[in-house]
Simulated scan of single mutants.
Amino acid sequence: MSLIPAVQKDEVLQRDFQSAVPAEGILLWWLGQSGFLIKSEYGTVLFDPYLSDSLTDKYRDTDKPHVRMTERAIKPSQLTGIDLVTSTHNHTDHLDAATLGPLIAANPSIKLVIPEANRAFVAKRLACDFAWPIGLSDGQSETVGAITIHAVPAAHNNVDRDQQGRCHYLGYIVQLGPNTIYHSGDTLMYDGMSEILRPFAVDLAILPINGMRPERRVSGNLFGDQAAQLAHQIGARMVVPCHYDMFSFNTESPDIFIDTCKMLGQPYRILGCGERFAFS
């Protein structure tokens, strides 16, 4: 199977990111799966990057092969000037040592935001100092330079908590000056979700659309129509879909997402891997 080509990749993408100047608003690049690179005059944020073939290698000779569908956008060591990187939960496509190791080495002052409930797991997987990551649970916030990040629950498939009541799965709301971005992480809908999110006045929502099918034997996400409906319910000015076209066993077409957004009058944008989008 031939891979879906990246719109930009490697040195071309690196130059585009380094040279682009966000005069107003933000610049956003989709890096595949749930990975998004955000650049603004207030700082740079990298959401949940997966920039390796670690899952394809791990499951190659199993009954659940992770066959890659889209080209890798860029080597993590090529991404410099990153202020903050996130992991919404412990699944490898959101906490990948093969991605985060080279990324951290290339950005010595980078900050990593994680669910506090996952601290021990993260420290072991990344072989990092136990105290180094910034840990959050839902309702908590942290400011890094001019970037403020708020944690909200995610349901993958449930809103799971540790014995101290801290969420294992999070979404993050990042404020970059006047711009507010919601990255849901992996999630289904849960009771009170819209009520939690609406007060943040989200400008740009980033939501998964690969859905949940029991035959895949993995935790599920929103389907495309549900993602469009959630964006509409919280009043997002724009929604961008993700978590599709990475692994052949766990993907969905964005068509139902597009159709539902059109029906609801919800502004949306479909991106190719490595494509830049200016939002203000």
Rank of each mutant, 00 (worst) to 15 (best):
K64F: 05
A23S: 14
L46K: 05
R72V: 10
R237M: 05
V159A: 03
A20F: 08
T56Q: 14
M238A: 11
S2D: 12
S77H: 00
Y42T: 01
R237D: 00
N90D: 06
M1W: 00
L37S: 04
L84D: 06
S2E: 12
Y169F: 12
L230M: 13
V21A: 10
H150W: 02
E116F: 06
H91N: 05
Y244N: 13
T180R: 11
R125L: 15
I4F: 04
G220N: 04
C261R: 13
C273W: 00
D203H: 12
Q175K: 15
I104Q: 09
V174L: 03
G43Q: 03
L27P: 01
R161K: 15
I181C: 01
Q175G: 11
L100D: 06
T187D: 11
V113Q: 07
A106V: 04
T143R: 12
D138S: 15
S219F: 09
L95A: 04
Q33E: 13
M238W: 05
L31A: 03
I104Y: 03
G25M: 07
G220Y: 03
Y169R: 11
I114P: 07
D162E: 07
G272N: 14
M238D: 01
K64G: 03
A227V: 06
S40H: 01
R119W: 05
F17C: 06
D53Y: 14
I256T: 15
E41M: 14
R276S: 08
D57R: 15
M1H: 13
N179T: 14
M212Q: 12
D245Q: 15
T70V: 03
V152M: 00
P178Y: 06
L176S: 08
S87H: 02
P108R: 02
P267A: 08
V239R: 03
P178D: 12
D16E: 09
H243S: 13
I149Q: 02
A123N: 10
G139P: 05
Q266E: 08
A73C: 11
A98R: 14
G171M: 05
L103R: 07
G35D: 04
P199L: 07
L84E: 04
F200T: 08
V45D: 01
F257R: 09
R161I: 08
G177D: 09
A127R: 14
D53E: 14
K64H: 08
D138T: 13
G235I: 09
D225N: 15
Q226E: 15
F249C: 02
Q226L: 08
F200H: 11
I181Q: 06
P199Q: 11
D16Q: 01
Q226M: 10
D63R: 02
G224W: 04
M189Y: 12
T143V: 10
T88A: 12
A231C: 12
G43T: 04
K9Y: 02
D16K: 02
L136F: 00
D162C: 10
L37I: 03
H243A: 14
L27R: 13
G185C: 03
P178Q: 13
H91D: 11
L100Q: 02
P49S: 09
C242Q: 11
I26F: 00
V240A: 08
H150E: 09
C273G: 11
E116M: 11
D48Q: 01
S2F: 10
E24S: 14
R166K: 15
Y50I: 03
S52E: 00
G35L: 01
A105E: 13
P133R: 02
